[in-house]
């Protein structure tokens, strides 16, 4: 029940935020990355799979949407759907190849595949190489909502985020999510109960890729730009950072982490190279002292006070669980 109140409060903040004078482009960027991180965490936090190639979905979907909207005249909703669909198909390919390996090997395969996507984005004619696809029209949502109006764009992004977040929330709390958590906790045991675990991991991978793509597509409309930055492995690393900062295995933690990272990048932008150093220091502090991430620690603290063990967040897993023996 508490969760509902917090969710309602968060939604209210989301609705009211533009009236506080906070720059809406910052909010929209943060929401896009928040969705990206939550989608990534569906895989890391709930299926126990560390993908190091999620930028491929985020970046390629952005290109597809930008190209579709600009060159083919797609409406914004169709552009986003197209980007999401392409990311899902790409996820099926990536997942199909990577899912058979565990731990570090899984991470390396996803990284290698995403590098291939990066070079595709660099070389393919429609992406315009280093320039990216610029001046992407935002268009009219459903034919009549003018997205050039900042408020319209903002609430569209908020709605997309809420939708994506709701999908993840439901997936985690579904029969499918139960099996996924069981696989994360003990895959061998899940197999011995008769589950063909690779299929579940693949389904989670595709879902995660599709939502990461939706985030990338949305970002392309917000910035009216699709560029190599979003497909670069830096973006893959950043999403890991956001997720760990916020708390993997908590549904909303990655969103908190994303807001934090985007805020640091935005508001400390004038300090130049210091941004990465500050980010690095914060990351080290969090990993060393609150291993469950910011939200993970908060949830853990509340659960301890109420002593309701069911609300307990994930214990950090031993290194062997990440690296796969």
């Amino acid at each position: 029940m508490n969760g509902r109140i917090i969710a309602a409060a968060a939604l209210a903040i989301g609705i009211l935020a533009p009236f506080t004078g906070i720059y809406t482009v910052f909010l929209m960027k943060a929401l896009c990355f928040a969705l990206f991180a939550c989608a990534f965490n569906l895989l890391l936090g709930f299926a126990g799979l560390l993908s190091f190639g999620h930028a491929a979905f985020f970046g390629l979907a952005a290109y597809v949407t930008a190209h579709g909207v600009k060159e083919w005249g797609l409406t914004p909703e169709l552009g986003i759907l197209a980007g999401t669909a392409v990311a899902a198909v790409l996820g099926l390919g990536f997942g199909g190849l990577a899912i058979r390996r565990q731990g570090i090997y899984f991470a390396m395969i996803t990284l290698a595949l995403s590098q291939m996507v990066y070079f595709f984005c660099l070389q393919a004619p429609f992406t315009h190489g280093e320039d990216g696809i610029q001046a992407v029209p935002r268009g009219y949502l459903f034919g009549f909502i003018d997205l050039m109006q900042p408020m319209n764009m903002y609430y569209t992004v908020l709605a997309i985020f809420v939708f994506g977040f709701a999908v993840i929330h439901r997936a985690v709390h579904s029969p499918f999510g139960q099996v996924l958590k069981a696989i994360r906790d003990n895959e061998q045991r899940a197999i011995s109960l008769g589950y063909r675990t690779e299929r579940y991991k693949l389904a989670a991978f595709v879902l995660s890729a599709a939502l990461a793509g939706m985030a990338g597509s949305t970002k392309a409309l917000v910035f009216q730009l699709a560029s190599l930055t979003d497909a670069h492995w830096h973006a893959s690393g950043e999403v890991v950072l956001m997720t760990l900062l916020g708390g993997m295995g908590t549904i909303a933690g990655p969103a908190v982490g994303a807001f934090l990272v985007v805020a640091i990048q935005n508001y400390l932008a004038e300090s130049g190279a210091w941004v990465t150093i500050i980010q690095g220091v914060i990351f080290i502090i969090v990993v060393l002292s609150f291993r469950r991430g910011i939200l993970g620690e908060v949830v853990g603290f509340v659960a301890k006070r109420k002593a309701t063990p069911a609300a307990k967040p994930l214990e950090p897993r031993p290194a062997s669980a990440i690296t796969g023996e």
């Binding site: 439901r170 579904s174 029969p175 139960q178 109960l193």
Partner: peptide
């Protein structure tokens, strides 16, 4: 989770846990 498999809804990520 062991009982669940026979229910045949284990891929349904859109259904509530209440099922």
């Amino acid at each position: 989770v062991a009982l669940q498999r026979k229910l045949g809804n284990s891929f349904q990520f859109w259904r509530s846990e209440r099922s």
